[in-house]
Simulated scan of single mutants.
Amino acid sequence: MEKKNSRMKRALKLRSKIKRLGTTRLSVHKTSQHIYAQIISGDGNSTLASASTNQAAIKAAVGYTGNIKAAAEVGKVIAERALAAGITEVAFDRSGFKYHGRVKALAEAAREAGLKF
């Protein structure tokens, strides 16, 4: 539980800072098999866009869902959906995960697709 508690403490610190700013955030969660991304409104009450490797279109495009290629595809899709919803700038909430590997691939793909953070 020590590892999870440390991650949750980092996530709480980051989310409190984003909440003070009051901006829309791109929240990321990962498991060993999947990665999930959501665009959450500034007040935190509603999800404006979402994408994950559980969705059939992404799953068919990448095959295995627990790697960097799949995370990059999710980043691209979430950026397209955010831009379609009129959102161009977000704060990146990595949920306490290190900015490395799949989290980094998702963030870079979202930036390349036109999302600013």
Rank of each mutant, 00 (worst) to 15 (best):
E108I: 15
A37C: 12
A61D: 04
A61E: 00
L12P: 05
A107P: 10
F92V: 15
G22K: 14
N45F: 11
T53S: 06
K17M: 10
T31K: 07
V62R: 08
S52E: 07
Y99G: 02
M8G: 03
A91T: 06
V77W: 07
K104L: 14
Q55E: 05
V77C: 05
M1F: 13
T88A: 07
G22L: 10
V90L: 03
I78N: 03
R25G: 09
H34I: 10
V103A: 02
R25Q: 05
G44W: 00
K19R: 15
F117Y: 15
A72F: 10
L83R: 11
L14T: 00
S50R: 12
E80V: 02
N5D: 11
K59L: 07
S27Y: 14
T31V: 04
R15D: 12
S50H: 15
A109Q: 00
Q55V: 05
I78W: 01
G22V: 04
E73T: 15
R15P: 02
K104H: 09
F97G: 08
Y36I: 00
A57T: 14
N54W: 02
A91M: 04
Y36W: 09
S6E: 07
A11L: 14
N54P: 02
Q33P: 01
N67A: 09
L48A: 14
A91Q: 03
T53I: 12
H100S: 04
L106I: 15
K98Y: 13
S16W: 00
S52Y: 10
A57G: 06
V103F: 03
A113R: 06
E80D: 09
G86T: 01
S50M: 14
L26Y: 13
K30R: 15
S16D: 12
A71W: 01
A72D: 03
R25I: 13
M8W: 08
K19L: 14
V90R: 00
T65M: 03
Q33Y: 13
K98R: 12
K30T: 13
